[in-house]
């Protein structure tokens, strides 16, 4: 019996709460989550791609999730985030006014989202973290919007791609909505994950990357910059980790995210501490 099978067996025994309805689970430990089933999908890779030095759309790869994973049903709310601020573990959000606590939290930087994940993990004894871009794209399901530009590589005229990208983002931009909506306002996807690709982009853990391909599409080299992370939404936005509001005009032509927020993935408890913590909670009932 391999170690991982052993852990799986242990989990079936100990993870009874995972079978309980969402509400009960939320009371038992942290925010409501949705289980994304194991499966495979065609993934439009993140990052910028150069083919023989010319910008092209990112390649598509088949990605397999051997295991299901849990992701928050809704984006982290104002009220949830404020608890972390009150505990002096998170910074104030940008533009934190007297917003109702149930609205999704916005004005959040990557750093803020990471701080919240660390705090929530600390408080619950569970491992909460930002999703990777891959996980987010998979969990987005039918709400995922392909951000390929769809223009043939043009070695003679770089402007053709710039204009095509601008037009694509401009048409997205015309649908933007300045109002922060009630949770659930943008509806659920086939997994029951709510508000994907609405007017709040969500931080992922994935760093900016530039991948250089040869003429056959083989990866020659890659540069990664983790000072810039991907905010996922109507299209991928590459944003510095300390930015809480990505709006603006100027040289960076395109459609910036309307708002920055996030949701977290809960990792399956594997550490003995987490298992014990959860075990205690289940038997002591809601706190």
């Amino acid at each position: 019996m391999s170690a991982s099978t052993c852990i799986k067996a242990l989990m079936i025994l100990l993870c009874v709460p995972a079978m309980l309805p969402d509400i009960a689970r939320a009371e038992a430990s942290g925010p409501t989550t949705v289980m994304i089933p194991a499966g495979r999908f065609d993934y439009r890779s993140s990052g910028e791609f150069l083919e023989n030095g010319y910008p092209v759309d990112a390649t598509i790869e088949e990605v397999v999730f051997e295991e299901p994973f849990e992701i928050m049903r809704f984006q982290v709310s104002v009220g949830q985030y404020e608890q972390c601020v009150a505990a002096n573990a998170c910074r104030e959000r940008l533009g934190a006014g007297r917003q109702p606590g149930h609205l999704p939290a916005t004005g959040i930087s990557f750093r803020d989202a990471s701080d919240y994940a660390n705090w929530l993990s600390e408080v619950t004894g569970e491992k909460w973290r930002l999703p990777t871009d891959k996980e987010w794209a998979y969990a987005a399901g039918d709400r995922f919007i392909d951000d390929a530009i769809g223009v043939e590589k043009d070695t003679a005229n770089p402007a053709r791609r710039w204009i095509a990208r601008y037009s694509k983002y401009a048409s997205l931009g015309s649908q933007t909505d300045p109002e922060i909506r009630e949770p659930g306002a943008y509806g659920a996807n086939q997994f029951g994950v709510h508000d994907i690709s609405g007017n709040i982009w969500e931080w992922t853990d994935t760093c900016y990357s530039r991948k250089r391909l040869d003429g056959e599409g083989k990866l020659m080299s890659e540069t990664e910059n983790c000072g810039v992370r991907i905010a996922a939404g109507q299209h991928r936005a590459y944003i510095s980790f300390f930015i809480q509001d990505a709006k603006g005009g100027g040289c960076s032509v395109g459609a910036p995210p309307e708002y920055l927020g996030f949701r977290l993935v809960r990792e399956r408890p594997v550490g003995i501490k987490a298992v014990l913590h959860r075990f205690r909670k289940v038997f002591s009932g809601p706190e």
């Binding site: 003679a156 005229n157 402007a159 204009i163 601008y166 037009s167 603006g248 005009g249 100027g250 040289c251």
Partner: peptide, 30 residues
């Protein structure tokens, strides 16, 4: 030259943060 041009008030704080930016979309050969 084709491409995208930003026409701005070159007090860039006013251009980017306060709103004084227009864009030109120019078609043609590079």
């Amino acid at each position: 030259q084709p491409g995208l041009y930003a026409y701005v008030n070159h007090n860039l704080i006013e251009a980017v943060n306060l709103g004084a930016t227009a864009h030109f979309q120019v078609e043609g050969e590079w």
